[in-house]
Amino acid sequence: MPIALAPFLIPLSALLLSSVLFGAFVWMAGATPSDVYQSIYRGAFGTWYSWQNTLTRAAPLMLTALCTALPARLGLVVIGGEGAVVIGGLVAALAGIALLDAHPMVALVGMALASIIAGGALIGLVGWLRQARNVNETISSLLFNYICIAILNFLVVGPLRDPETLNKPSTHHIGETHMLGYLGDSSIHMGFAFGLIACLILWILYKHTTFGFAVDMVGGNARAARLSGLPVRKIMLLVTFMGGAAAGLAGMIEVAAVHGRANASLNAGYGYEGILIAFAARHHPLAIVPMAILFGGIRAASDLLQRNHDLPDATSLVLQGIIFVLVLASEAIYARMAAKSGYKS
């Protein structure tokens, strides 16, 4: 296999193999694989309506994927996107409530800043614990997820609850006029543009700036980076902060564009799915965009699978899980190819 094509061919074959395995799974569950795939296609990409659904769901996924993909460049495996979404959404809702009387633009900027700072601080703390106390970043970020979810649940059920929300305890509403708008006359909210722009900016930052170069040095060999006088700690803190900020912004989008309030819906697995997308995209900010759309499509088609094929609720999770395992397994192929091409005389 030519090396230049490997980054495309390997994930593609992993996806193909995943669909074969998933086909076997739905067949055992009593459905016809070809019909199921047709439904997924229709639910995700078949019509303009389903496209809008898909892209709306892809918006937070792009941002949560960045939460894993950015620190990955430093060799860190951060899985705290879910916690950052939750805390970002919660803080955004608080900011929105505090700015109820402000101009909508001011309110939105305030909410966005609050969510960026909260999410960034959370994952930045993970980075700090790693370099100052040598705490494993994967474990700490995972545990922070539970802490953030618990904080959210405590606050929306307790002190911050809007008494009018009966079925689903939530905070007060941020005000209809302060909601994030839509792109043109579609039903895709502005969050999709946020995600797209964030991926693009971070790609440029990593690929074309001296900052990205320094991140590569620190991630590739911190000793060499120190030899060159780079502030390794600062760079680590900054990169983990940026990752958390992206996921925090995803939480703000969910509040400001979808729910209007902070509640348990923030904890809908966008953060966890982002991990999967980051790995499937091999932590490349631009490759995250199509991967997020693909996974957004699977989410969007999930209802249709239940309705049309009597498949259980978790079916789309099975597909995600199969893809994740195979994509991770295919990483080994890169390692083997690198070993082969690295022949030394």
């Binding site: 170069f213 590569d216 000793r223």
Partner: peptide, 21 residues
């Protein structure tokens, strides 16, 4: 290789450590 270079970065990039910024 252990102390002064990043093995997965290119020769050009490694040579640029002092001047890239």
């Amino acid at each position: 290789l252990r102390n002064a270079s990043v093995s997965r970065m290119s020769v050009a990039e490694n040579l640029g450590f002092r001047c890239f910024d």
